[in-house]
Design a protein around this nucleic acid. Structure first.
Lengths: 335, 335
DNA sequence: TTGTACGCGTTATCAC
DNA sequence: GTGATAACGCGTACAA
């Protein structure tokens, strides 16, 4: 593979001169310019970014560490990240942790060794280790989707609480008095925020959430399992709140197995919408998160940090959800 | 950021010795080993992969270039790629071309400059330019999902023809005589393969496909548009074949708008299944592709090329689809 | 406008 | 067992 030296030799100039031509930096006479470009073309010269990065201490690479790219919410975020990064001349490495802190740590090690310029992280647990590791190396890191307690980092996330409150209040106003919350792991802020806001909204209406909050994981099977537990309660809940898209789908599957019709016999609302491209008959009443926008904003935040490393105060950007009313929440309860 | 030199100095040894300890290569006395590791820990030493790669000429990075990660088929492939790569100690850069050959070329340039060790490509067009570019640089490339004409490259894809024939024959055996094919761009092999196999299967049954094959793009909106065109035909088709998942969903949406019930008034089958996690009520009869497996196999193929650069003959791995019978194809036609 | 010297961080080669 | 030297490919600082 030819180097800039080879190009320079062939053009009869010094390496640095060829470099200047290739990078359009500094001066170069028309004659030299042409000779260098000709030589580069003839040799099929491809600049070596590795060497360039070693010198410049900039890799123009970002890392995106999340739980599972297979979840459409994260897929969409990912697309936003890549679009924004690509426009700015950055490349993205992506990593799936499956909510494992160990995996997260391993990936953090790898990308720090690869000298990525910045990291976008959806923390599997509290995120402390990762945030600390990035800080020690002086690599900017932006937390995506989740809150982190007390850490001084930039965060781009959605307002889980407001969306949850709004949906819960709506169920209450429709007449529901016993509503079950099916949420994710207690180690994940969004799962906790949604559960808490749910309880708050119930308390506000002087309703009890006791025994009605189920912690599981953000998967279809967990959603189905939690539904079974919720349906075993007496009196049976008249409405369910699924804390994410996968839980909602698992809930629908389980409800169908049990022969319960939604919303006629039981109402269902959920956090997270599915991308329109994937849904034929939009049916779920949801609090939709602007996933693509989250990816873009987080990336822009990170790029700004790179541009101004001296900035100090961390920023928390909290985007609002949009409640979309569909059939699954049903109308006012009778009787 | 401390270097191996700093570690060595602190441990009172030469850089190369510290390097040997850190990499577990070559000999080192117990004493030296301990001192070096202690120094590395104290300094928070993180090896610089950039420098390592510059020397070793191996970046342990792969590129995955595809049309749109937002399509669940590609999302699943992507997950397979990352899992396999990660297990082997490789990192993955991903790129969305949106079926644009220009974007593809730009990304090819970028990743070649970044000296990725290998490339996984879902070509937007014929793939010639990209394949040629990779070959010139001596970078192994595996084509994913699509055929490329006459090129000497490894390919991992699905048997579009067999799956299409099977589905088409099924529709014919159910009594359908006028079936419309809604496919993707004529520049994409899978779109063409499916259209052709469709025509073959019809011919086999002495049925005509004339005017019944619509080329569009692999999107929901295109699917909806093609349905409108198909429904304008007289006599109206009694069944539709959607060549991918997005087209199928667009078709369902458009059919509902037109007030046509599936399968009672019109049957529908499609290529591509949706991941079970995303579907509440599996409804579409499909030829499902083993997307995750495709990602894994393509990556394994690529890793083998890296391990044995001297191998010659390109391999084409063609995986089979699985036809899954569901409600949308309906039963035998009456009358 | 062009060139020389050097260093980015690492490791292969050869020597002790 | 350990170390000195050089080289991977590039671009900054400084000269000419």
């Amino acid at each position: 593979m030819p180097t800039i030296q080879d190009v320079a030799r062939r053009a009869g100039v010094a390496a640095i001169t060829a470099s200047r031509v290739v990078n359009n930096s500094g001066y170069a006479s028309q004659d030299v310019r042409e000779r260098v470009l000709k030589a580069a073309a003839e040799l099929g010269y491809v600049p070596n970014t590795l060497a360039r990065s070693l010198r410049s201490r900039k890799s123009h690479t970002l890392a995106l560490i999340l739980s599972d790219i297979t979840n459409p919410f994260f897929t969409t975020i990912t697309r936003g990240v890549e679009d924004t990064a690509s426009d700015a001349g950055y490349t993205v490495i992506f990593c799936n942790t499956d909510e494992s802190e160990d995996e997260e740590s391993k990936y953090m090690d790898v990308v720090l060794q690869k000298r990525v310029d910045g990291i976008l992280l959806v923390p599997a647990g509290g995120g402390e280790r990762s945030i600390q590791a990035a800080r020690e190396q002086g690599i900017p890191l932006v937390v995506l989707d989740r809150r982190v307690s007390g850490a001084q980092v930039d965060v781009v996330r959605c307002d889980s609480q407001a969306g949850t409150r709004e949906l819960t209040r709506m169920l209450v106003s429709l007449g529901h008095r016993r509503i079950a919350m099916l949420t994710g792991p207690a180690s994940v802020s969004t799962a906790v925020d949604r559960a808490e806001a749910f309880c708050d909204a119930l308390a506000e209406a002087r309703l009890s959430a006791e025994g009605l909050v189920f912690y599981g994981s953000f998967t279809q099977s967990s959603g189905a399992e939690m539904v079974r537990q919720a349906l075993a309660l007496r009196p049976r809940p008249t409405a369910l709140f699924a804390a994410n898209n996968f839980i909602a789908i698992g809930a629908l599957v389980a409800l169908r197995e049990q022969g319960l019709r939604v919303p006629m016999e039981i109402a269902l609302v959920a956090f997270d919408d599915l991308p329109p491209a994937l849904v034929t008959f939009p049916f779920l009443t949801v609090a939709a998160q602007p996933a693509y926008e989250m990816g873009c904003q987080a990336t822009r935040r990170l790029l700004e940090r790179l541009a101004h490393p001296d900035q100090t105060a961390p920023v928390e950007i909290v985007l609002q959800t949009e409640v979309i009313l569909r059939a699954s929440s049903g109308g006012p309860l009778e009787g």
